[in-house]
Write a protein that binds this DNA or RNA. Structure first.
Lengths: 214, 214
DNA sequence: TAGATTGTTAATCGATTAACAATC
DNA sequence: TAGATTGTTAATCGATTAACAATC
C-alpha cells in the first residue's frame, strides 16, 4: 500500500535507515523495535513508523521489525538491488577521488567510464578505468548506454554538458559543480552536492554556537 | 532585530543566497527585488523576505535590495568576513581532493595543516602544506590553535579522533566519514557530508522518476 | 504624488508527534 | 492469555505562502 508521493524529508532519511540497519545486522541484531531504533538514530519512534508505512507494513505487532528483512526492503525501495551504469565527467582531483572513494555497486550504480578534456589526464587510469577524451563521449554512450553521470567539471561547462548527456540518454546527475543544475527536463533526477555550501553552513554554525539553544 | 533562534531550513538557504548574489553582482546587477530573485532561485518572494527578516531589515520599500550591500550582510551573518584556522585529518584521495578543490578563504576558513597516519603519505605536499604524522597533532594544535577540522579518515577512527580534537580545542567538524558524528559535546558544530547517502538518494530518485509528480 | 516593494501579520499547508485500537 | 509493539488516526507544531499596511 505504498503512497503515491513520498515527501522529500522521508526520502532523505531512507539512506540513513539503510545504513543503521546494516550496522545493526553486523552487530548481530535480529529484531528491533521502532523505539529502540529511534534512540539509536536520534529520531522519534512515531516518525520511524510513519516513514516505513509510506512504503508498506514491514513490522509485526508485539515484535517489532526483523532487521535483515527490513534492510532488504529499504534497499529495494532505494533501488540498491540493481546497478545503473554511470559515467564520470571531469577526472581532476575531485572526480578521481570520488571515483576511488565511493562504493558505487552498493549504492545502486556501476561506474563504467570516465571522461576529461585535459590532454594530461586522458589515458590515465582511475581504478580499472582508463580516462577517455570527451570527443569519445557520444560514441561511448551509444554503445554502453550509461543512465547516470557524475559532474566534476568547472561551473562554466556544466549546463551545456548536462544537455548533451540528456540527449545521450542520461537520466540522473550527481552534480559536484558550483552550477545549480535545474531539473527542467522532465524525467531527469538531479542530486546537487555543493560542498562549498556545506562548508559555508559550517561557518555559520561555528559563528553562532553561543546564541543557539539547539 | 535578529531572531534568537534561526530555523535550520533558513540556515541551509543562506549559502545559496550568498552565491546567487555574488553571481548577480558579477553580472552587473545593482538592485534586485524579492520577486526577481525568487524567479531566479526557484523560491517564493515571501520566503525570501521572511528569510532576510530573520536577521534584519536589509531592503527598502519601493526599491528592493542593493545586491552588493545584501551580499556583504549575508556574508557577515555566515561568518565569511573572518577565516577560522582549519586542519585536515586524513590526506588520502578524498582529503587531498577536498583540500585542493575548496576555496577555503572565501568560505570562512583557512587550511593551516594536514595530518595522516600513513607513512607513504606523510611528508607529501598538498598545495602549500606538508602532510604531518598524526603524532605531531597535539603539539601542532597547542601552537597553532586550529578551531575547525575536516575528517577524511576511515569510519572506525572517526569518533576517537573527534574526541581528541575536541580536547585540543576544535569546535567545528566537517565530517566526510561514514560515521554519524553526534553533537554530544555542547558548543561543537558538526556538518556531516555523507556522500554515500547523497548517491543513494539519487538512486531512489532515478528509480522513482515515473511515480513522482514533483 | 503614484507606483513599487518591503516588512510583517494572518492563513495555509505539510511534517512531526502523540495517542490508541488492532493484533501478534 | 497478557504484554508488547505495530499501523494509523488525530493533534500539534513549524514552515511556507498569501495578504496588506507601511513607506520609500
Amino acid at each position: 500500500m505504498s503512497k503515491s508521493s513520498i515527501s522529500n524529508s522521508v526520502i532523505r532519511r531512507l539512506p540513513r535507515y539503510y545504513r543503521f540497519l546494516g550496522e545493526l545486522e553486523n552487530n548481530g541484531y535480529v529484531r528491533i523495535s521502532s523505539r529502540e531504533l529511534s534512540e539509536k538514530m536520534g529520531l522519534t519512534a512515531s516518525q520511524i513508523r510513519q516513514d516505513f508505512n509510506c512504503f508498506g507494513e514491514f513490522g509485526q505487532q508485539g515484535y517489532g521489525y526483523n532487521v535483515s528483512d527490513l534492510r532488504i526492503e529499504i534497499g529495494k525501495i532505494l533501488g540498491l538491488d540493481k546497478q545503473t551504469p554511470m559515467i564520470l565527467l571531469g577526472a581532476g582531483n575531485l572526480g578521481k577521488a570520488i571515483a576511488a572513494h565511493i562504493d558505487f555497486r552498493n549504492k545502486g550504480f556501476d561506474l563504467i567510464g570516465a571522461f576529461d578534456v585535459n590532454e594530461g589526464i586522458i589515458g590515465k587510469e582511475i581504478g580499472d578505468l582508463k580516462v577517455r577524451g570527451i570527443d569519445e563521449l557520444s560514441t561511448f554512450c551509444a554503445e554502453n548506454k550509461p543512465v547516470a553521470a557524475i559532474l566534476c567539471v568547472p561551473m562554466g561547462a556544466a549546463e551545456k554538458l548536462a544537455n548533451t548527456l540528456i540527449e545521450c540518454g542520461v537520466k540522473a546527475f550527481w552534480n559536484f559543480t558550483h552550477y545549480d543544475l535545474k531539473v527542467t527536463h522532465k524525467g531527469v533526477a538531479v542530486e546537487n552536492v555543493h560542498l562549498g555550501d556545506s562548508l559555508t553552513t559550517l561557518s555559520y554554525c561555528l559563528n553562532n554556537l553561543n546564541n543557539s539553544e539547539k
